[in-house]
Design a protein around this nucleic acid. Structure first.
Lengths: 216, 216
DNA sequence: GTCTATAATGGGATAGAC
DNA sequence: GTCTATCCCATTATAGAC
């Protein structure tokens, strides 16, 4: 038991507390938006004073950026390295859709905070998106295009195909409120996500299947 | 020239000014969110004092609700009565996708304000969505289901098919910032929208075509 | 690291003259 | 209808005791 272990314990404890704060913050930011969120609200739901919270995150913007960083970390951990041009296109697309829908189901607040930032023009986080998201997206598109060049996928517009997959899967987190109103229930269920996965997969596979390429 | 015409001219002028204010407000709300928007900002871009703006809209919330009402009016004017079960499914779907993409292209701010409201849980406008949007959506879904029952459309999940069409078409307004980063340009072009329309139409038509029903 | 106290700002809303 | 002036409150952020 040296001072070194005590110090590292302190650091670990700080990391844990910061993570707890960020977890609560993502929920409030998703429900109220950046400007609509007060750090006092977040602190209160954690049973802590807002001054204490500001000891860990000196500014509201710092907390917001931490939240977005966490969102991106979790998203990239799940989505990076899924699109492998060596694998079978149909299996990769299945897995891609499944992973994106799972993220929407398990991290709806993360998805919403990110969506709001993008809708508002990504004024604060655009640079990070350019650095961390865009390269991954381009890699996915190139994977699609290679499959097309190799004749393993119907010649569709790879960029817009990816946009379509994104939009369809993300909407189950972002627009849940509206979907729930249409379905006349409080929230989406596991069954809704399973049905969504089935339809989206069918749509995408029908699109990339050679015989469907001449449609429309 | 009676006082009556003068009064009606006054009313007309008031209507015109309110519409001008709402038009500017939808842009600012879309870029900054509800709480992030100050009425002083809107007033300033119109060259008017905020007190003067508040003569027309006594509260910020009243202005916001007016903006959402306008958004819904414009959207319903374009989208209502498109899904006609008597028509050919493929032609209706084509027109539906085209109309939704056109709305995204011509009214991006309207789309974004609406999206932000829904993402935040539709806390302020949920009742209006239930009354004005949900019935229309249900009618569209029923149209799809009738086509399926009549064997004119492959037996897919009609509700999720509509969710998918919505998500894909709306994303070109809501997530333009991210798409522009991927495409490495300042904003989406007419060509992007045309390519999107082609792919989305191909996807939907491939999905509702009988032979594709057994996919996935 | 947590507390009390307080500065400093911004913004929604109102009152009243003209 | 438009202006000047002002109130009031919420919120971010800081200072300093313990």
């Amino acid at each position: 038991m040296t001072t070194k272990t005590a110090a590292s314990r302190r650091v670990l404890n700080r990391d844990r507390l910061e993570a707890e704060i960020a977890t609560e913050a993502v929920r409030v930011f998703a429900e109220c938006g950046y400007e609509g969120t007060s750090i006092a609200t977040i602190a209160e739901s954690l049973g802590m004073s807002k001054q204490n919270l500001m000891y860990y995150f000196p500014t509201k913007q710092a907390l917001y950026e931490r939240v977005l960083d966490d969102v991106l970390d979790e998203w990239l951990a799940r989505m990076a390295s899924l699109a492998d041009p060596e694998q079978d296109p149909r299996e990769v697309l299945r897995a891609y859709i499944q992973a994106k829908l799972k993220f929407s189901r398990e991290h709806p607040y993360a998805s919403r905070v990110y969506a709001m930032e993008v809708i508002g023009g990504a004024q604060l986080y655009g640079a990070q998106i350019r650095e961390r998201v865009v390269p991954l997206v381009r890699k996915d598109i190139e994977c699609f295009e290679r499959w097309i060049a190799e004749g393993r996928m119907a010649p569709v517009n790879a960029t817009h195909l990816l946009f379509a997959i994104w939009a369809m899967t993300q909407s189950y987190a972002d627009f849940e409120a509206q979907m729930a109103l249409v379905l006349d229930r409080k929230a989406l269920t596991r069954k809704d996500f399973d049905e969504a996965e089935q339809l989206i997969t069918a749509m995408v596979l029908a699109t990339v299947t050679q015989s469907a390429a001449t449609e429309a």
